[in-house]
Every structure is written in C-alpha cells, then in structure tokens.
C-alpha cells in the first residue's frame, strides 16, 4: 500500500489587483459596483488583492471582506502593506502578499516623475508576444523588422542586409549584414547566429562594427548580449 499523497509546492496564479485611493467601505462599494456593472459576469468569484499605500490607515479589512463576499468576489489578501496594515489585514484573515522585486508601488501619492519611470519600465519590460520567422536567405538591400517580436531567420543574412527586432534575433545561417536586437530599448535582448561575419551588431542602441567583432568568434557560432552597459560576445 502506498502512502497517501501529500506535497507542498509553490505555484503562480493570476490575481486581480485593485488600486484605489479610497478604501472606505462606501467608496469601495461605489467603485466596485460601477466596475461590475460594466461587465457583470467577468469578475464573478474572481480572486482579488488590494494594493495598499502607506498613508491609508485604519482600514476596516473585515467589513471590506464582507463587502467582497456580498458582491460575489473573493478577497484573497493585500499587498504593499506597511507593518501596521499587515497586522490589521492578518487579523481579518487576509493573506499578505509581496509583489515581485521589480514592481514598484503605484499610488495616488507617487509623484509624476515616479509615474513616468514606471511607464518607461513598463514599456521596456514588454515581453514580445510573437516571433517572426523568415524561411529564406535575406539578401543584400533587404530589411526585415520584427516589431514587438523575436526574429528567426532560417537562412543567411547577406552583406548589406538588415535584420531588426524588438526582441531577440536568431540566425541559423551566416550573419554578414547588420543585426539590431532590442530595437525598442531592451538591453536584455540578444543576437544568436550560426556564423558571425557581421557588418554591425547592435543591442538596444549599443553597437559594434565588424572591426570590433574580429576575434575569437569571427566566423564562428556566437551569442551577442549586453553586460554592464557594454556588448559581449560569447559562445553559442
């Protein structure tokens, strides 16, 4: 007879986060009812998390929880809680969640400058959703741009040709032309090619010409990426 199965595992789930400057019972009720009115079925029994701001004090978590239940929503917990808020939330039986390191709190109190930063961060962090695949060789004079996407070229990129992507670039043939990855400014993007003989490689605006590429990886398979604000070439 095998033992009954029991295991604890971490996992990630999508949760809806509520950002609101007004966390009074009446204010929340009005806002939620308005939102639910727009799409009644959409949030049915949806798991929610409230994002807190430090200046929001003495929040009646227990009543808010009841309000959510009445509106057929499931309040799971709070995030961005100050130590005091944390205590109050836990007393009301709510989980205290922590956002990932990168995410910055947004609240009504954040300054305009901070908001701008957030926007910039958001646009850079945009993950390419698509991949553009080119099946043939890219000839001299041709230009391929994979907007908001990774680019895969199954052939070679000829001298005088240009391949540009907001995401990563993979070239399964020889790269003789120009390759520009992370064209939207993401320094985390890379260029992979089977044979490096490029005129120019660029990641997020930083570029190297073929003179700088002559070295251990010229004529070989290579991976080009950014490290500490400069381009580095490594083995594929």
């Amino acid at each position: 007879m095998s033992e009954p199965f029991f295991e604890l595992k971490g996992s990630l789930f999508p949760l809806t986060v509520i950002h609101s400057s007004d966390l009074t019972l009446a204010g929340l009720q009005t806002a939620l009812e308005k939102k639910l009115g727009q799409a009644p079925g959409f949030f049915h029994q949806a798991a929610m998390v409230i994002q807190l701001a430090p200046e929001q004090q003495n929040i009646d978590f227990a009543s808010i929880k009841q309000l959510f239940t009445a509106l057929k929503l499931v309040l799971v917990g709070v995030t961005n809680a100050s130590p005091e808020q944390k205590q109050q939330a836990q007393a009301a039986g709510l989980a205290v969640l922590r956002l990932g390191q990168d995410a910055k709190p947004t609240s009504s109190a954040s300054t305009a400058a901070e908001k701008q930063n957030d926007n910039a961060a958001a646009s850079v962090q945009q993950v390419p959703m698509h991949t553009k695949v080119v099946e043939q060789n890219i000839r001299s004079g041709q230009q391929i741009y994979a907007k908001g996407a990774d680019l895969i070229v199954r052939g070679a990129v000829g001298a005088g040709a240009e391949v540009i992507a907001d995401g990563h670039i993979h070239i399964y043939g020889t790269l003789r032309g120009k390759a520009i990855a992370g064209a939207a400014g993401d320094t985390g993007k890379r260029i992979f090619c089977h044979n490096l003989q490029a005129e120019l490689v660029s990641i997020a605006g930083h570029y190297w010409l073929s003179d700088s590429l002559q070295g251990d990886f010229w004529n070989k398979a290579a991976c080009i990426r950014m490290q500490d604000d400069s381009i580095v070439i490594g083995e594929l």
Binding site: Q136, N137, I138, R139, S140, G141, Q142, G158, A159, G160, A161
Partner: peptide
C-alpha cells in the same frame, strides 16, 4: 557578388 545578392532579393520580392 554583392550586387547579385541584391538582385536575388529583388527576384524573391
């Protein structure tokens, strides 16, 4: 060779 490469691109597009 470079010009031929260019023309090959034209042929395919």
């Amino acid at each position: 060779v470079r010009d031929s490469d260019r023309i090959l691109g034209m042929l395919s597009s």
